[in-house]
Amino acid sequence: MTICAFDITATDAREAAGDTAPEGGYRWVHFDLTDADLPAYLEAHVPAIPAAALTAPETRPRADRYGDGLMLNLRGVNLNADGPADQMVAVRMWVTAKLVVTVRVRKVFALDAMRTEASQGDAPATPMQFVSTLATRLMSRVQDTVFDLSGRVDEMEDSVQDDDAPLPPELAEERRMAIRMRRYLAPQRDALVALVGIDSGLITQANRDSLREQANLAKLTVEELEALISRMTAVQDHHTAQAALMQGHTGYLLSIVAAVFLPLGFVTGLFGVNVGGMPGIDTPWAFATLCISLVVMTVGAVWLLRRLKWI
């Protein structure tokens, strides 16, 4: 059973009736990939190669012409509760002048919004307007997600101003999110650019202009994601450098202390042995002399280290 099916004309949209698309319009049929009726419908209405593309277990964004139709795959952010936004949802499409078939695995909110509008009699007048509207809504949600991520990265960069601030615990996950989104959106950018250049009678100049804007938005979004990844890497590098600097400073101080107290430890260890023949054993002022000698040695060690510019 289909998720929905509508017959759409320039002035109306209503639930599909009969076996053919309306005169002067097209039919939109929307399936879930697990729908048991999908294989039979595709066998009856869609050529074999596009049908295989619609039911492929894995997809990537694409835009290819096949005969008088178009095979399209687009992705949008996952707004479902079953996963993070960067676990993007896919829309598979077969588009001709009289038929639009869409297939999804997870719920796609942009398609659900178009479904609601179609049930109210409002839908894109042509198949390519349908594609353009869907691409616009998908990219709008992607851009909102990237803007939110950019705001969080701004906050991380602000934390860099405070050298004592700890490394943001969410940094690693946010960077992985940006990398995963770039992985899917870079092919989507290429697919939208390819779609603009396809020579097909389905695509009017107005469609090309609208799709070109979405392709440009996809380019800007990918560039923004690449910039965000670099910015988060810089934040990580700053905190790593601060930690290394602090560790090096601590090690340096310990080395100075060790250098100062090394001769003192030698002298006190030497005079602490319990054997005969140690000088000053029978002299009352020998202990005071030893203490004064240790102070002089400490001052001398500090003076020498400063003279050598080690401190």
Rank of each mutant, 00 (worst) to 15 (best):
K98Q: 12
L33T: 14
P50L: 05
Q120A: 13
A125D: 08
E43R: 07
Y66I: 11
V146P: 01
A90V: 10
F130A: 05
L72D: 05
A81H: 08
T59D: 09
L111A: 03
V89N: 09
D32H: 12
E43H: 07
R141L: 15
A118M: 02
R65W: 02
A40E: 11
A135C: 12
V91D: 09
Q129P: 00
R106Y: 10
A110I: 10
V91W: 07
V91Q: 09
V100M: 03
Y66A: 15
D32T: 13
Q87M: 12
V89I: 09
T116N: 10
L42Y: 06
P124I: 15
F130W: 14
L72F: 05
A36T: 12
D64V: 15
L38G: 03
P84Q: 06
A85W: 00
T96Y: 02
V131F: 01
A63M: 05
A40N: 09
A123I: 07
H45V: 13
P61V: 05
E117M: 11
P84W: 04
D86L: 04
D112T: 07
Q120I: 00
T145L: 05
V77D: 00
M88C: 07
V95Q: 01
P124K: 14
N78F: 00
R60Q: 10
V142Q: 05
P57F: 07
E43T: 13
G121F: 11
A81G: 08
S119K: 13
A56G: 10
A51E: 04
V95K: 01
V77A: 06
R92W: 01
L99P: 05
V77P: 01
L72K: 03
Q143T: 13
A63G: 09
D64E: 15
K107A: 15
G67S: 04
T116M: 09
R60I: 06
R141Y: 12
D86S: 15
V100L: 06
A135M: 02
R106C: 06
L79G: 02
T136S: 11
A113C: 09
G69D: 04
V103R: 05
N80L: 03
N78Y: 01
Q143V: 14
A125G: 02
I49T: 10
A90R: 09
L79Y: 11
D64T: 14
K98W: 01
A63N: 03
Q120W: 06
G121Y: 11
G121E: 13
Q87R: 14
T116G: 10
G69L: 02
A110Y: 05
G121V: 09
I49D: 11
Q120N: 11
V95S: 04
T96V: 03
A85T: 03
L42N: 07
A90P: 04
R106G: 10
L38W: 03
